[in-house]
Simulated scan of single mutants.
Amino acid sequence: MQYEAIRVEIDAAAHLATITLNRPEKLNSFTRAMHTQLHAALDEALAAGVRALVLTGAGRGFCAGQDLADLNLEPGASTDLGAVIEEQFNPLVRRLQALPLPVIAAVNGIAAGAGANLALACDIAIAARSASFAQSFVKIGLVPDSGGTAFLPQRVGMARALGLAITGDKINAEQAERWGLIWQVVDDAELLAQATELATKLAQQPTRAIAAIKRAMRASTTHTLDQQLDLERDLQRELGNSYDYAEGVQAFIQKRAPRFEGR
């Protein structure tokens, strides 16, 4: 399917989808229409049975967050930003976090505001060496949204999270990697190839287990130890009855490579 602001490529043989934010002239900043198209693209990818997803941006930026031109900024009649968050960004972040497959952000340039937190909402973020990240909300009198106030302290600690949020300063990809904000930095020319290689590898893994790992890791931020132990028990019981567990055990016994199917 064709979308104006989103490009979708599905490799059926590799069970892989690559979704590209495609408003390069606007640094892939979001409009209402772009949100709708991205959800449709995710629907398309899931319907195709993909088992891994790469999210990237066209041109010189990954995503600059919200396109302010899509908002009404007239005093007394300005757009309700809470409604924009509730109706557009929050559902997207929740969906990316809950997708039953690995999601890799390939950050190809500036990731600013909600665009930075969109990358952090993915399971693994790989950045080009020339990429940068900025929590630019404070520069227009706002608070980090799209999960920023959760993702930042979890990944870099409170001191650095507050520093990034309060100053709005931009950090480069190598600093983001050193701080643990992202998984890996690669040379610009290798970004999409490296992200695709990792996604292709993960698509061959037991993706049902990967979905359970995502769920358990994210639950740990609000669970007590007892709650987390119970969740691990329940997930292990469920996965212990799966095809992939049986296949993995048989492959180990037979000293061969497993053939996982994500079920």
Score class of each variant (00 low, 15 high):
Gly113Lys: 07
Ala119Asn: 05
Lys139Trp: 15
Ala134Cys: 13
Ala125Val: 01
Ile126Val: 11
Gly109Cys: 01
Asp145Ser: 07
Ile110Pro: 00
Phe137Val: 02
Gly109Leu: 02
Phe137Ile: 01
Ala112Tyr: 05
Ala127Ser: 10
Gly115Ile: 05
Ile124Gln: 00
Ile126Tyr: 03
Ala112Gly: 13
Ala114Gln: 11
Ala116Val: 00
Ala127Lys: 10
Ile110Gln: 03
Ala128Asp: 13
Asn108Ile: 11
Ala128Pro: 14
Ser132Arg: 03
Ala111Met: 07
Pro144Asp: 13
Ser146Cys: 15
Arg129Gln: 14
Ala125Glu: 03
Ile110Met: 02
Gly113Tyr: 11
Asp145Lys: 00
Ser132Asp: 08
Ala127His: 11
Gly113Pro: 05
Val143Tyr: 12
Ile110Leu: 01
Gly141Thr: 10
Leu120Ser: 08
Ala121Met: 09
Ala131Gly: 01
Ala105Thr: 14
Ile140Lys: 05
Cys122Phe: 05
Ala114Gly: 15
Ile110Asn: 04
Ala114Met: 08
Ala131Gln: 01
Gly141Gln: 07
Val103His: 12
Leu142Asn: 10
Ser146Ile: 10
Ser130Asn: 13
Asp145Asn: 04
Val143Arg: 02
Ile104Pro: 01
Cys122Arg: 03
Ser146Thr: 15
Ile110Cys: 00
Phe133Met: 02
Gly109Thr: 06
Pro144Ala: 12
Ile124Ser: 00
Ile104Lys: 07
Ala106Trp: 12
Ala134Asp: 12
Val143Gln: 07
Ile104Arg: 06
Leu120His: 07
Lys139Leu: 15
Ser146His: 14
Leu118Phe: 14
Ala105Gln: 08
Val143Gly: 02
Ala119Gln: 10
Ile104Leu: 12
Ala105Pro: 11
Arg129Gly: 12
Ala119Phe: 10
Ser136Val: 14
Gly113Trp: 08
Ile140Val: 12
Pro144Thr: 12
Cys122Val: 07
Ile126Arg: 03
Ala105Asp: 09
Ala131Thr: 03
Asn117His: 11
Ala106His: 11
Cys122Gln: 05
Ile110Glu: 00
Ile124Trp: 00
Ala128Asn: 14
Asn108Trp: 14
Leu120Arg: 04
Ala111Gly: 03
Cys122Trp: 06
Ser132Trp: 06
Gly115Leu: 03
Ala112Lys: 02
Gly109Ser: 07
Ala121Asp: 12
Ile126Ala: 02
Ile104Gly: 06
Ser132Leu: 06
Ala112Cys: 05
Gln135Ala: 07
Phe133Arg: 02
Gly109Asn: 00
Asp123Cys: 02
Ala119Thr: 09
Ala128Cys: 14
Leu142Ile: 05
Val143Pro: 05
Arg129Ala: 15
Ala106Thr: 14
Ala128Ser: 15
Ala112Glu: 05
Ala119His: 09
Ser130Ala: 10
Ala131His: 00
Leu142His: 07
Ala127Thr: 13
Asn108His: 13
Ser136Gly: 12
Gly113Cys: 14
Ile104Trp: 11
Ala112Ile: 02
Asn108Leu: 08
Ala116Leu: 12
Pro144Lys: 01
Ser146Phe: 14
Leu142Trp: 10
Ala111Arg: 01
Ala125Thr: 11
Cys122Asn: 06
Ser132Met: 04
Ala116Ile: 02
Ala105Arg: 06
Ala127Ile: 12
Ala116Tyr: 04
